[in-house]
Simulated scan of single mutants.
Amino acid sequence: MSSSDIFLGETIGTAVLILLGGGVCAAVTLKSSKARGAGWLAITFGWGFAVMTAVYMTASLSGAHLNPAVTIGIAIKDGEWGDVPVYVAGQMLGAMIGAALVWVAYYGQFRAHLTDESIISTPHEEGMVDQKAAPAAGPVLGVFSTGPEIRNTWQNLATEIIGTVVLVLAVLTQGLNDSGKGLGVIGALITAFVVVSIGLSLGGPTGYAINPARDLGPRIVHALLPLPNKGGSDWSYAWIPVAGPLIGGAIAAGIYNIAFA
């Protein structure tokens, strides 16, 4: 596959991933959304289906990594790093596009939510997604990026590492296509269910970023968007959902090379 195919596939796929994944967070969180309060099950299955949709849509173009941790894991497994910057660039751009599209789709709900005095004057709003215990976070940051329920740096980092090890090891052992460069047809379905499982089992402490682009790209968009009363983007926490998944992806590749290769 060419560099242009990789960049285009990763941009489109990650945009769809964040549009649908961020969209379910918006649906559950925002005032005047028909799905408000639907809960954690809706979010975990929404993200799982988002992964499945995005992978099936773009696997033929780029292999549908859609996640720098997956890209790093495959690069370590194969020892081939030439296309890594192209993958990551497409993933970051796609994540930002997807987050911006969530804002467009829920524009009225964002405005209603962020102009409601009962919401913007309450630090820990009932029903918030991902950001209940984040003093540096605004009232809708959980729609865009993750945050911990309890702020403990080593625990938050460890949780992201552990979740990503499970994801990337599942991709490497069960999900790759015949070329070994991306997800296959059955692998896409397996990976979607793995994402749901991680969300249900390990998502509670941090909101399970398990993908640096998924967290950093939308967090940048949150910082840039003209949202009234949006509050902070919690940059003091932002390194954890980037570093944790990258470390987890590398560990998963190491385990694969030792135990499965």
Results as ranks from 00 to 15, higher is better:
residue 3 S to T: 08
residue 5 D to C: 11
residue 6 I to A: 08
residue 11 T to D: 09
residue 12 I to S: 07
residue 15 A to G: 14
residue 19 L to C: 01
residue 20 L to I: 05
residue 21 G to P: 02
residue 24 V to Q: 02
residue 26 A to D: 04
residue 28 V to E: 14
residue 29 T to V: 12
residue 29 T to C: 12
residue 30 L to Y: 03
residue 34 K to T: 14
residue 34 K to W: 13
residue 34 K to L: 14
residue 39 G to P: 10
residue 42 A to S: 15
residue 44 T to S: 13
residue 45 F to M: 13
residue 47 W to C: 08
residue 48 G to I: 02
residue 52 M to G: 06
residue 53 T to Y: 08
residue 58 T to S: 13
residue 60 S to I: 10
residue 62 S to C: 03
residue 62 S to M: 02
residue 63 G to H: 11
residue 63 G to K: 10
residue 64 A to R: 07
residue 65 H to V: 05
residue 71 T to V: 08
residue 71 T to H: 03
residue 73 G to Y: 00
residue 74 I to L: 12
residue 79 G to Q: 06
residue 80 E to V: 11
residue 82 G to W: 08
residue 83 D to N: 15
residue 86 V to S: 09
residue 87 Y to C: 10
residue 90 G to E: 03
residue 90 G to P: 03
residue 93 L to Y: 06
residue 93 L to I: 14
residue 102 V to F: 12
residue 102 V to I: 13
residue 104 V to E: 02
residue 104 V to F: 13
residue 104 V to D: 03
residue 107 Y to N: 13
residue 108 G to D: 15
residue 110 F to H: 06
residue 111 R to K: 15
residue 112 A to H: 11
residue 113 H to T: 12
residue 120 I to T: 15
residue 123 P to S: 10
residue 124 H to T: 15
residue 126 E to Y: 07
residue 126 E to R: 06
residue 127 G to Y: 04
residue 130 D to P: 00
residue 132 K to E: 15
residue 132 K to I: 15
residue 133 A to K: 11
residue 134 A to D: 05
residue 136 A to Q: 11
residue 139 P to H: 13
residue 147 G to M: 12
residue 150 I to H: 01
residue 151 R to S: 12
residue 153 T to M: 15
residue 153 T to P: 14
residue 157 L to D: 10
residue 160 E to S: 12
residue 160 E to A: 12
residue 162 I to R: 01
residue 162 I to E: 02
residue 163 G to S: 09
residue 164 T to E: 02
residue 164 T to Q: 03
residue 165 V to C: 13
residue 169 L to N: 07
residue 169 L to T: 09
residue 170 A to I: 05
residue 174 Q to S: 14
residue 175 G to F: 06
residue 176 L to A: 07
residue 178 D to L: 12
residue 183 L to Y: 05
residue 183 L to Q: 11
residue 183 L to F: 06
residue 185 V to G: 13
residue 186 I to E: 10
residue 191 T to S: 12
residue 191 T to Y: 08
residue 192 A to W: 01
residue 193 F to V: 12
residue 194 V to R: 08
residue 197 S to F: 03
residue 197 S to M: 06
residue 197 S to Q: 00
residue 201 S to I: 09
residue 203 G to C: 05
residue 209 A to K: 07
residue 214 R to S: 00
residue 214 R to M: 00
residue 214 R to F: 01
residue 214 R to C: 00
residue 215 D to N: 11
residue 218 P to K: 05
residue 219 R to F: 01
residue 220 I to H: 07
residue 220 I to F: 11
residue 225 L to G: 07
residue 225 L to M: 14
residue 225 L to R: 09
residue 230 K to V: 06
residue 231 G to V: 00
residue 235 W to I: 00
residue 237 Y to M: 11
residue 238 A to C: 13
residue 242 V to A: 04
residue 242 V to K: 02
residue 242 V to L: 03
residue 244 G to C: 10
residue 244 G to Q: 08
residue 244 G to S: 11
residue 244 G to H: 09
residue 246 L to A: 09
residue 247 I to D: 02
residue 247 I to T: 04
residue 252 A to N: 07
residue 252 A to F: 08
residue 253 A to M: 04
residue 254 G to P: 05
residue 255 I to D: 07
residue 257 N to K: 15
residue 258 I to K: 14
residue 259 A to E: 03
residue 261 A to Y: 11
